[in-house]
């Protein structure tokens, strides 16, 4: 496959209306097939809508749900990424994205980072995933799937790339905010995301595919602006803000090899260095070693030295220092 045809399904899911959204997915998969797509990407929680709150449990599906199998069945000679609320056998609810290929479920990613600050309240309603794996795919290159906030943590694109992903797919329900006239594209959120995606594409020398929804849930408007970025960090396509549509993009796969040979950042990565230093930082945070950036007389597990008045250790054990 020399050229990958990506179809970005920038849809406005109906909140809580699983069957209506499922029907729309089937329609768009067929339309994308007719338009020659190799890969179709739907946004985060495209099958359910985003601001579910207590509805999450009512629209959740298990991975053996026949409706998911039905979607998978529609993917002969096609790769499709869909997103939904996944209920595990032990009844935890995850925000999940599945890669469906050739009639079956190829891979499932559970959202790792659940924003619970500002306008977000995800941790109240969902469990965080524990696994991050790249997956081989019929597209001829490794695929890494992430969901929205996952991409606001440097580790996610980096680990996916080190694990063999050459195509990084982020599916999002990103709420638009900050209309300051000084923003590059008239929307603060869009400006931030564009910076992230170009940076990740360049630093991981990977193709970055971003599919963000449009439409409104309650107070929140989702801004769309789905994109495909080349491994050089150069944008290949940007969908319009706020407009629903199925957008197809031709992505030259040969650029991956060229870019990785000319800019061998991944070859030069030092995962063993990261493991060593992260092991130390984790130990320091857990009070198992003296924090190297703490005050001189701080007890292990704390980073501020207590005043002279305090004689008895209150931390984990008496600190080193002197």
């Amino acid at each position: 496959m020399q050229t990958l045809t990506v179809a970005l399904a920038q849809i406005a899911p109906r909140l809580g209306m699983f069957d209506a959204n499922l029907a729309r997915h089937h329609e768009l998969i067929e339309e994308a097939r007719v338009r020659g797509a190799d890969l179709v990407v739907f946004p985060e929680l495209g099958l359910t809508g985003y601001l579910l709150q207590d509805l999450a449990a009512e629209v959740a599906i298990r991975l053996d749900d026949p409706r998911l199998a039905g979607l998978a069945a529609a993917t002969e000679d096609l790769s499709v990424v869909v997103s939904f609320v996944e209920e595990s056998a032990d009844h935890r609810l995850f925000i999940a994205a599945a890669l469906l290929e050739d009639g079956r479920i190829r891979h499932v990613h559970r959202k790792l980072f659940l924003p619970t600050y500002g306008l977000f309240d995800e941790r109240r309603f969902f469990a965080a995933g524990d696994l991050l794996r790249a997956t081989p795919s019929r597209l001829g290159a490794g695929v890494g799937i992430a969901i929205c906030e996952d991409f606001w943590h440097l580790t996610v694109p980096q680990l996916l790339a080190l694990d063999g992903a050459q195509i990084l797919i982020n599916v999002s329900s990103s709420p638009g905010r900050d209309l300051a006239a000084t923003n590059e594209v008239g929307l603060g959120t869009a400006t931030s995301w564009r910076t992230l995606m170009r940076t990740y594409a360049q630093l991981t020398t990977s193709i970055v595919i971003f599919c963000n929804r449009v439409g409104v849930d309650e107070s929140i408007s989702f801004w769309g602006g789905s994109e495909v970025i080349a491994p050089s960090g150069r944008p290949l396509f940007g969908a319009p803000l706020f407009e629903e549509g199925l957008f197809t993009v031709e992505v030259p796969l040969a650029d991956l090899r060229r870019e990785r040979l000319s800019l061998p950042l991944l070859r030069d990565e030092r995962p063993e260095l990261q493991v060593r230093e992260l092991t130390r930082i984790v130990a320091e945070r857990a009070g198992l070693a003296q924090d190297s950036t703490a005050d001189d007389l701080a007890e292990t597990g704390l980073d501020v030295a207590l005043g002279d008045a305090v004689r008895e250790p209150i931390g984990f054990r008496r600190g080193g220092g002197k």
Binding site: G176, L179, A180, A181, T182, G186, L187, W223, L241
Partner: peptide, 13 residues
Amino acid sequence: AIDTDVARQVIGQ
């Protein structure tokens, strides 16, 4: 100062 075109799009939606 806001981008009024974007504001109209968001508010219309």
